[in-house]
Amino acid sequence: MASKTLRAPFSLRLLTSGFIVFWLILAAFPFVWTLWGSFKVELDFFSIADWTNALTGYNTERTYGSPFTGVGYHGAWVQEEFWRAVINTGIVCLFVVCTSLTIGTLGGYALSRSAFRYTFWLLIIALIFRAMPPITLVSGYLLPFFEWNVWGILPTTIIVLVAINQPFTLWMLHSFFQNIPKELDESAKVDGCTQFQAFRWVIVPVMWPGVITTGLFSFLLAYNDFAVTSMLLSESNRTMVPEIAAFLGTTYTEGNVMFAVAAVVSATAPLFILVMFFQRQIVSGLTAGAVKG
C-alpha cells in the first residue's frame, strides 16, 4: 500500500496499536472472563469481598478442594436437563437452514433471472418484511396457533423461522445469482433444457459458495432467536436461548446462577467454532449487501 511507504510517526503507531489492544480486550475479555468463571462457585464468580477470588477460586478450593469445578455444568446439563434444549436447538437449526435454503435458492434464482417489473416489487416487499421485528408478528401467530392446536411444538417454530428468514435469504441469494453469468443457463436452454433442468445441472454445481454464506446467516438467525422461540415453544420443547432465559427466572431465587453461567458458556461455544471456520464467509456475507448498496 502506498501509505505504508511513508512510515507513520511513532506516536501515531503507538496510538493505533493501543486502540486495537483496547478494542480486543473489550471484545474478547467478557467471554474469557465468563468461561473462566463458569468453573467457579457462585461466591467466587460474584465476589463482593475481593474480586481476585474469581481468578484464584478461593471459595471453590475451600468447597471442592480444587480451584476448578464442573458443578455448574453438571447442574445445568444433568440436573436441569439442558441437553434437551441443545437437541431441540440442533433440530430447529438443521431444519430451518435446509428448508430455508431450498426454497430460498429457487426464489432467489427466479428473481435474478426474470427481467419483469414485478421482481423489483417483490424484492421491495421482501425488504419491508425483513425490517419487521419478529416480536410484532408473534402476537399475530398466537391466536390462530392456539385455535389450530399447533402451538408449542417444534415444526410450527421451524416453519415460522423459515418464513422470517426468507426475505434476507432472497436478497442475499438474488445478488449472488446475479453474479453468475446468465449465458450459462441460457446456453443450456438453447441445447434443449427446461428452465429447471438448466438450474439443476448448470447453476446448482456453481452456486455453493453463495449458498453456504447464506446458510450461515440463516443458522445464526435460528440459533440466536429469542422472541419467536420463547413465545411459540412449550416448556418441554424449549430451545437453548429461551431455556437460558427460563433459568434466570428460577435460578435467582434458588441461588444457582452458576447453572445459567454454564449454560451460557455452552451456548456460546458452537458460535466460536463457527466463526473460527467460516470467518471469511461471514465477512463476505456482511459486506455483500453493503458494497452493492
Partner: peptide, 12 residues
Amino acid sequence: FSLLPMIVTPLV
C-alpha cells in the same frame, strides 16, 4: 475477535 460480540446470541 472483533466478530465475536456481533455473532453471539444477543440474550447471551
